[in-house]
Every structure is written in structure tokens, then in C-alpha cells.
């Protein structure tokens, strides 16, 4: 109970987890799917969430038997650390009682806890899994990060080699400067 005095910021997630556990107890029957990540960790995931993953849907279309059997659905390009984050995101966003403010706070905290490398890893995983909501959230977030940054930051962020010759780059920058010139 002492926990209650703690910052309210962490509350939505905790409540979400509690709610989730409650659901697990009351709805013992809720069907689950077995997912196996690239690092060979198996997860039992509620079907309602797993079916939001385009990759899982596609797999089940090809081999419908997997939904009932004990065979795990392989997720070749998703490591367990990413899947944990993706499940955390979807459990929160799937939670019926989550208000708009709760979700906004959750999203902010979710993003804050990720470094740039993790953010990119997660985007790759979201793209592979074909999960629209998280994918849009991540692309928007990355766009916001780079929006006001300079070219050097962007190159470092994405690990891009500058393939312009110094002359070409100077010419482009100059050209870019006139693109910003006013007509007046």
C-alpha cells in the first residue's frame, strides 16, 4: 500500500498490469498463441493481441493448424527484448480503461526509456511484425527527433555515409541556400 504514495506517473502502467492479471485470472479460457523470437525465447501471448500483428495473421493464413497446436509461430526478425516492448505497448493501448491522457503519458515515458539504437531496432521489429499503430507512432517520433537537427546529426543517427564529394556537397548546400532565398 505504501506504493500508492509514489509518483502518479507510473500508475497507469501498474494498473494496466493489474488489470491484465485480473483478466488472466477471470478469463482463464482466453486463447493464447505461442510466439518464438529470433533469440529462441517463447512467449505465450493473448490471441487478441497477437492477432494485431500482421506477420502472425499471415502465418496463420498459411498454416492455420498453428493456432491450436503447440508449435510456436517463429518471428525471425524480432528479438525478445523488442517483443517485450511491443507487448507492453499493445497491452497499454488495448486496455479499455486507458484514457487519452494516460496513453499520452505512457507514450512519452515509453519513448524516453529508449535510446536511439533501441528506437531503430523497435521500428525494424514493428515493420517486420506489421503492427500499424506502433509503426506510425515510431516513425512520427523519429521524425520529431530529427526535425530541427542538422545534416551531421541525421547522418550519425541513421549511420549514413556521406557519399558526396566535398565539391558536390558544397554545391548542394549552396543550391539549398537558394531554395531558401526569397523572391522579394
Amino acid at each position: 500500500m505504501a506504493e500508492e504514495t509514489e509518483s502518479t506517473k507510473t500508475e497507469p502502467l501498474k494498473t494496466a498490469e493489474e488489470e491484465f492479471k485480473k483478466l488472466e485470472i477471470t478469463e482463464e479460457e482466453e486463447s493464447e498463441l505461442k510466439l518464438e523470437t529470433s533469440d529462441h525465447v517463447t512467449f505465450m501471448v493473448e490471441a487478441s493481441i497477437a492477432m494485431k500483428f500482421g506477420a502472425v495473421q499471415q502465418y496463420l493464413e498459411v498454416s492455420p493448424a498453428a493456432s491450436a497446436s503447440a508449435t510456436a509461430i517463429p518471428l525471425h526478425n524480432v528479438a525478445s527484448r523488442e517483443l517485450i516492448l511491443i507487448l507492453e505497448y499493445y497491452r497499454m493501448h488495448d486496455w479499455v480503461d486507458a484514457g487519452e491522457r494516460d496513453l499520452k503519458e505512457f507514450d512519452e515515458r515509453f519513448l524516453k526509456d529508449l535510446n536511439y539504437e533501441e528506437l531503430k531496432e523497435l521500428l525494424l521489429a514493428a515493420n517486420y511484425l506489421n503492427v500499424e499503430k506502433l509503426f506510425n507512432f515510431l516513425t512520427k517520433s523519429i521524425a520529431n527527433i530529427i526535425r530541427n537537427k542538422d545534416v551531421e546529426f541525421v547522418r550519425t543517427f541513421f549511420g549514413i555515409d556521406n557519399d558526396y564529394t566535398p565539391e558536390e556537397e558544397a554545391a548542394y548546400r549552396e543550391e539549398n541556400a537558394w531554395a531558401g532565398v526569397k523572391f522579394v
Binding site: 547522418r155 555515409d161 556521406n162 557519399d163 558526396y164 556537397e169 539549398n176
Partner: peptide, 13 residues
């Protein structure tokens, strides 16, 4: 406006 700045990132971009 931002995109025009990012043209300088690389040829691919």
C-alpha cells in the same frame, strides 16, 4: 523546408 535541408545527407536521400 526540412526535407530540402536533408537533401545534403547523401545521394540516396
Amino acid at each position: 523546408k526540412t526535407l530540402m535541408r536533408f537533401r545534403c545527407v547523401s545521394k540516396t536521400w
